[in-house]
Simulated assay, not measured.
Amino acid sequence: MRVTVVIRYVALLVTLLGTWFMVQTYFEGSWRAISLRSWLGITSKPNSKQLRQHKCGNQDCSSTHFAFKIISGAANVVGPSICFDGVILMSSVKNNIGRGLNIVLVNGTNGQLLKADTFDMYSGDINKLDTFLRQIKDGTIVLTASYDDAATKMNDKVRALFTELGSSHVSKLGFRDNWVFVGAKGLKKKSPFEEHIKNNKDTNKYNGWPELLELEGCVPRKMN
């Protein structure tokens, strides 16, 4: 009788050792990844150093910056879009874009939308844009996207006003060029947020127009 009991214990021990061996061999990687907290369904607290969630579908920005994304128009078919701090401010869907320059003004401290307007640079009145730019107050962030034609009506006075906002490329902007730009009133140096592509029949992606431009990043808040 005692021999039978011993045999049973030995068989049980062999079974346990075999099971342990299989687990170690085939599930070692995943086994190590299981912690007591995850097994109990307890999740870790978020890292306080983590950045905010993605806004405008682009990179993360810290609490001292605003996320933005600008897409220029594609030829004269697809309109531009301007997103700022997670909100689409201008787009074809919102039905508030137009041929020429599409410009958004936001408060540089709190990110509040101040104004959005379009300016026909092919057959419109350039004085409308001139007045608009001169009325921008210090601390305002300016986001610009071109569509179709951005420069036929452009003159030296308007180019100078954009230069004051931090543009490096407006002086070279020509007929049907594509241009996206983020600047600010009171900026003491050139803006790092600007892209420009020339209308060139040898390199144009579309018939008569260059390819669209995309610009995204984190623009710093204006601290009072």
Rank of each mutant, 00 (worst) to 15 (best):
V3N: 05
T4P: 00
V6L: 11
Y9R: 09
Y9D: 06
V10E: 00
V10I: 13
A11D: 00
V14K: 00
G18M: 02
F21S: 14
V23F: 15
Q24E: 11
T25I: 06
T25P: 00
G29R: 12
R32D: 04
R32I: 03
L36F: 15
G41E: 09
I42E: 14
S48Y: 12
L51T: 06
R52G: 07
K55L: 11
K55D: 06
C56V: 08
N58T: 14
T64C: 05
H65S: 02
I70F: 12
I71F: 10
N76T: 14
G79C: 01
P80H: 10
F84Y: 12
F84D: 07
V87D: 13
V87G: 04
I88H: 12
L89W: 04
V93M: 03
T109G: 07
T109K: 12
G111Q: 04
L113S: 12
K115T: 11
A116E: 15
D117V: 01
T118W: 01
F119D: 05
S123E: 13
G124W: 07
D125T: 06
D125V: 05
N127G: 00
D130T: 01
T131Q: 06
F132N: 02
F132C: 03
L133E: 05
L143K: 11
A145F: 09
D149M: 01
T152D: 08
D156G: 01
V158P: 02
T163G: 12
L165V: 08
L165W: 10
S167C: 04
L173N: 11
R176W: 07
W179S: 10
F181C: 08
A184F: 07
L187G: 12
K188R: 14
K189S: 14
E195R: 15
H196E: 01
I197G: 09
N200W: 10
D202R: 13
Y206H: 15
G208H: 09
E211Q: 15
L212E: 14
L213M: 12
L215N: 08
G217A: 04
G217V: 02
N224F: 11
